[in-house]
Design a binder for these strands. Structure first.
Lengths: 235, 235
DNA sequence: CGTGTGATTGACGCCTGTCAACGTCTGTGG
DNA sequence: CCACAGACGTTGACAGGCGTCAATCACACG
């Protein structure tokens, strides 16, 4: 599944590094990081790490998109969030000494830099700015998760679907044809919204009928963003 | 609403302090904390801080129980978690520089030590163990929140209610008569489970009929814990 | 061309939210 | 001391949202 890449991109050349938690590392620290990290490539469907496994390091996304999901008793998946270029994943379990609470799976061809837990924790402990950034990252994710709980508890499927479309738009943007850059199966959309696939299909058709979106296979074009906002916020 | 107490308990005498994130402070740091902190008392229903407000400090619970909830568009509340003796609340917004994502409200008579943001952040920045503990705390809460999302997405009301009863039991324990120590209104239970009050009432009666619990007003006695576990886990 | 995966549509029925009415209890004011 | 208001709890009726099952279609791939 997982293939080690011979050409490991250097953090010094990484265009993302200044937008990540690593932005405050010293040159020395960055050099160490460069030396100790690895880089792996994955294809759609490959698993980066499994829920329940101990995390022996963290991953910084160099290129591509992945999903983080939890699996219920009956095997149904609930996508917790997506991550893309520049995002750090796997730090929660490494820092809390717990096993991973989600599974990470590639949504397209991705390249990840792997940072061993030891290296990562050393950075956290020795660089005050870095650890502060990490605390902030984790606190922000906590805020987002709490918001998600509220939505799941109080919004119906139609409202949540509208919200998810807007989220995808905001997170991944659209191409030159105004089509959402991220391409998901109906099952995957259902797994974010937290509903049955059939419900997603029916509601998407409704949105299409109401001229809120255009559908073309997995391509989704948002026509009336404001209206979707109205729906997702319950006016 | 809020009355400042003349007798501020000292952290040195606090029986909780060794079970909190403050356990790794030096004596000097603890002295500073003692000097700069305040102590406030609240009665049931009093608000400690409001969702959306900037947090100007964090609170350490000296005595009592409180609930943290978010409010939906229609005013309906969703309890995110409870906090009791020894818990730290309000740190998320202080550390992430965001406004509070929940409202904190007293469930009974409580005493809180208030630590100004400046004091708190200084500790985070200067004490490596302390900041590491905080990261862990925040990461653990994130794990719990993710689990909550899964539950809300995939479990039905009956399953969630069983789970909440077990959670309350685990968190607050029972008294000498095996009655849950925490006393909540039906509305509050509904606000944790994420359902209508009437549904909670109906399902509690069902549990009672099935001899899983005993009800006496707000007093709940768990009779068959294993069976509740079975229900909450979907067998 | 057969096979498999994903998308779609229809039928059906249960779960659960909503509305309304009523019972219960407590505290307050006359 | 009683009447009353108000908060909370309970029960019944009802309908609509949404999950499930099954059948069919579309499309890619070996």
């Amino acid at each position: 599944m997982k293939r080690t890449n011979l050409e490991i991109p250097s953090c010094n050349d990484c265009r993302q590094v200044h937008h990540t938690v690593f932005k405050h590392l010293t040159q020395d620290e960055l050099d160490t990081l460069n030396f100790e990290k690895g880089c792996n490539h994955y294809k759609r469907g490959n698993i980066i790490f499994h829920e329940g496994n101990k995390g022996n390091g963290v991953y910084c996304i160099y290129e591509g998109i992945l999903k983080l999901y939890k699996t219920g008793i009956d095997g149904r998946k609930q996508i917790i969030r997506f991550a893309q270029k520049g995002s750090l994943i796997g730090f929660r379990s490494v820092l809390s000494n717990e096993s991973a609470c989600t599974t990470a799976e590639a949504l397209n061809d991705i390249s990840l830099c792997f940072i061993p837990a030891k290296t990562f924790v050393a950075l956290v402990q020795n660089n005050r700015n870095f650890s502060m950034n990490l605390i902030q990252l984790s606190c922000k994710e906590l805020g987002i998760a709490n918001r998600f709980i509220l939505d799941m508890a109080q919004k119906n499927v139609r409202e949540r679907l509208a919200e998810v479309l807007l989220l995808l738009n905001e997170t991944f943007g659209k191409d030159e044809n105004n089509i959402l850059k991220i391409s998901l199966t109906r099952v995957e959309i259902a797994n974010i919204v937290g509903t049955a696939t059939e419900s997603v299909i029916r509601l998407l058709s409704e949105f299409k009928k109401d001229k809120l979106i255009e559908l073309n296979g997995r391509n989704i074009k948002i026509l009336r963003e404001k209206e979707l906002e109205r729906i997702s916020d319950v006016y």
